[in-house]
Lab assay of single mutants.
Amino acid sequence: NITNLCPFDEVFNATRFASVYAWNRKRISNCVADYSVLYNFAPFFAFKCYGVSPTKLNDLCFTNVYADSFVIRGNEVSQIAPGQTGNIADYNYKLPDDFTGCVIAWNSNKLDSKVGGNYNYLYRLFRKSNLKPFERDISTEIYQAGNKPCNGVAGFNCYFPLRSYGFRPTYGVGHQPYRVVVLSFELLHAPATVCGPKKST
């Protein structure tokens, strides 16, 4: 009989979020998941679920829940969905086509923008091939755009693969920082350890 609540607040209220190319993952297990707390949290810009209804989450049990978190621009949030393409979905964070879970995003301009620009948040701009679902690539190898080998030196046709967002408070909404948490639900042939409040007695 599990009684402790799942530590969703640790994920959602973290002081610093990860850059999207180096997205953070927390495994959540052996706890009671009260999703209504999240669902009623006012400032969400997006709360979209795939393969599961957000209002039914509290009735369900899962083997594991993974909480992935990172920061992207407002106009990139739409790429955090199954079957998407674009710089983020291709080179930074890719969801599987059969994704079961929820994508939760909110504007973090007050936290993550600075006058003069916040350059701490990076994304991958160049990559030889697209990421596989949930693949994480933190390499900083110089990207070779031409035929000539770069030998690890940036220059003509040789690019550092990461780019900084440089968030400023005055940017338009599409270019403002958004914090994103992706909850993915794993249902294995194993005992369920993460259940909603109704199922955990």
Rank of each mutant, 00 (worst) to 15 (best):
K114M: 05
Y91N: 04
N40P: 08
T140M: 06
I104V: 05
L188R: 12
N151F: 02
K48D: 01
H189D: 12
P7T: 07
F45V: 08
N118R: 00
T3L: 03
S164D: 11
F41Y: 12
N4H: 11
N58A: 11
P43T: 13
A46C: 10
T100V: 02
F134S: 05
S139K: 06
E76H: 11
I138N: 08
S108A: 08
S113A: 06
S78H: 13
N87L: 11
I142H: 00
L111R: 06
V194K: 05
S78A: 05
Y91L: 10
E76D: 07
T63S: 06
L187N: 09
A46R: 15
K48Q: 02
N87V: 12
A105W: 08
L38V: 09
K199C: 12
V65F: 02
V153H: 08
A42K: 03
S129T: 06
A190K: 08
G146S: 08
Y121H: 06
V173L: 09
K114Q: 00
L188Q: 10
G152P: 07
P197T: 10
Y143M: 06
A190P: 09
V115Q: 00
V173W: 14
L5C: 01
N147Q: 10
N30D: 06
T55W: 03
G166C: 06
N75Q: 04
A190Y: 01
G146Q: 15
R73N: 13
K26H: 10
G117Q: 00
F12M: 06
N130M: 02
D9K: 12
F45I: 10
F45T: 10
A145C: 13
L187Y: 07
N109D: 08
Y178V: 15
S200H: 15
P149L: 03
D59K: 01
L111C: 04
T55Q: 03
N40G: 02
A145Q: 03
S129F: 12
S184V: 11
A154H: 10
G155W: 11
D97E: 15
R163Y: 06
A14R: 00
S184C: 08
A192M: 01
P7I: 08
T201F: 03
Y143C: 04
G174E: 09
S29T: 10
N87D: 12
P191D: 11
S36H: 07
K198E: 08
Y143V: 12
A33M: 14
K114Y: 01
N4T: 10
I138G: 10
N147S: 11
D9F: 04
T140W: 10
L60M: 05
N40Y: 02
N151K: 12
F156T: 15
Q84R: 02
T140P: 01
V153G: 12
K148Q: 12
Y39F: 08
N109M: 05
K132T: 07
T193C: 02
L5A: 09
E141D: 09
A18D: 09
F47L: 11
A105I: 01
N64H: 12
S78M: 08
K199P: 14
N4K: 08
F156P: 11
N157R: 10
N87I: 08
R163Q: 03
F45M: 06
N109A: 10
K132V: 14
S129W: 14
N1G: 06
L57M: 08
E10S: 13
N1R: 12
G166Q: 08
G152V: 05
R73E: 12
N147W: 02
K198C: 11
S164T: 06
L122A: 12
A192I: 15
Q144P: 04
A33T: 02
S139Q: 15
P7K: 03
K128W: 12
Y35E: 14
T193I: 13
Y119V: 12
P133S: 10
G83S: 05
Y178H: 01
K26S: 10
I28L: 07
V194P: 03
P191S: 11
G152C: 03
Q144D: 04
Y119K: 04
A46M: 12
A145K: 11
S200A: 01
N75H: 00
F160S: 14
L122F: 12
A190G: 12
G174Q: 04
N157C: 14
A145R: 11
A190E: 15
H175E: 15
L60E: 14
L111K: 01
P7A: 13
P197R: 12
A46L: 15
N120M: 15
Y171M: 04
A42S: 03
Q144T: 04
N30H: 04
H175D: 11
Q84A: 15
A105T: 03
S129Y: 14
T15N: 14
N24S: 02
P149C: 06
G166V: 13
L125H: 02
T63C: 07
A105S: 10
